[in-house]
Amino acid sequence: MAQKKSSHRTAQEKAAAQARREQRQARTLRAREQAEERRKAAKRREQLTRAGMIAAVLALVVGGYFLITSLGSDKPDTAPEGASGNYGMVLGDADAPKSVVVYEDFLCPFCGQLEQTVRDRLDAAVEAGEVKVEFRPLPFLERIDDYSPRSANAFAVVLDASGPEVAKEFHDLLFDNQPSEEGPFPSDDDLVDLAVEAGATESEVRPGIEDMAFEGWVDAAGEAASKAGVNSTPTVLIDGEKATGTTIDQIASEMVD
């Protein structure tokens, strides 16, 4: 009888021990689940905080650009001789079957890539009377360096002093000698040298390049582009519609094919 009672107690103790183990396992599992939930919640908060910070920074950058654009220059926006009414330079037959507009920044590396990719074919199409092209230089990257507005101003000075043919050569030389976005950036003397290489007379372009003679016109060009919904360079319009290509090669093909 004593042995039976002892066996019965042992079975009860084992059952109780098993129950305690199961309870501990259940508590451990719940603790792990709660810890995982806390970890996920903390990660969500971190992601939301990071997203908020990024949005705030973008708002400051975009807002700062438009503030600068809206403030503009205190210089008049007098257009250079030979410029279009849309802050650009038009080349080609006015009755050409295709019209191309290129918004560009002489500091923009993607503009440089497009220029290298399409220049020869575009020049040939313009010469053949197949395409009319308008180049509209912008100061979009002035937040990186003032070379962006300085080069656009220099382009306007050369156009005003020497005409479209020399200005086109100067335009091409600016891209052929395009600096990295990290610098070093060409000086005013460098811009004058390129203008002279393109065919301009130094005495006619140096004062305007050094004094930012068309700074107001350049600022107005940036403001007009922004109002037109242009928020990146290069932006290409073909017969009034934005190019649909997603790569430089595709955009280049749309411009000349």
Rank of each mutant, 00 (worst) to 15 (best):
K5S: 00
R9L: 03
T10P: 06
A11P: 09
K14N: 03
Q18V: 06
A19N: 12
R20L: 12
R27N: 10
T28I: 05
R30Y: 03
R32E: 11
R32K: 10
A35S: 10
E37T: 15
R38Q: 13
R38P: 06
R39K: 12
A42Q: 00
K43Y: 02
E46C: 06
Q47G: 04
L48G: 13
T49S: 12
I54C: 04
V62Y: 14
G63F: 06
G63E: 12
L67S: 05
L67F: 08
S70M: 12
S70H: 10
S73T: 06
D74S: 13
P76Y: 12
D77L: 12
T78S: 15
T78G: 15
A79Y: 06
P80N: 11
S84Y: 04
N86T: 07
G88W: 04
M89P: 11
M89W: 10
L91S: 02
L91D: 00
G92I: 07
Y103H: 09
D105S: 05
C108F: 06
C111G: 08
C111Q: 03
L114C: 02
Q116M: 02
L122Q: 07
G129Y: 03
E130V: 04
K132E: 09
K132R: 10
L138Y: 01
P139Y: 03
E142P: 00
R143Q: 01
D145S: 15
Y147K: 08
R150V: 02
A156P: 02
L159K: 08
D160G: 11
D160T: 14
S162Y: 12
G163N: 14
A167G: 11
H171V: 11
D172K: 09
L173N: 07
N177K: 08
P179E: 05
E181F: 00
E181V: 03
E182M: 02
E182V: 00
G183A: 08
P184H: 05
S187Q: 09
D189I: 14
L191T: 15
A195K: 04
R206I: 09
P207A: 06
G208Y: 07
E215R: 11
D219Y: 11
A221T: 00
E223A: 07
T235M: 15
T235A: 15
V236I: 08
I238Q: 04
D239H: 05
G240N: 14
K242P: 01
G245K: 07
T246W: 08
I251F: 05
E254F: 11
E254A: 09
E254I: 07
M255P: 14
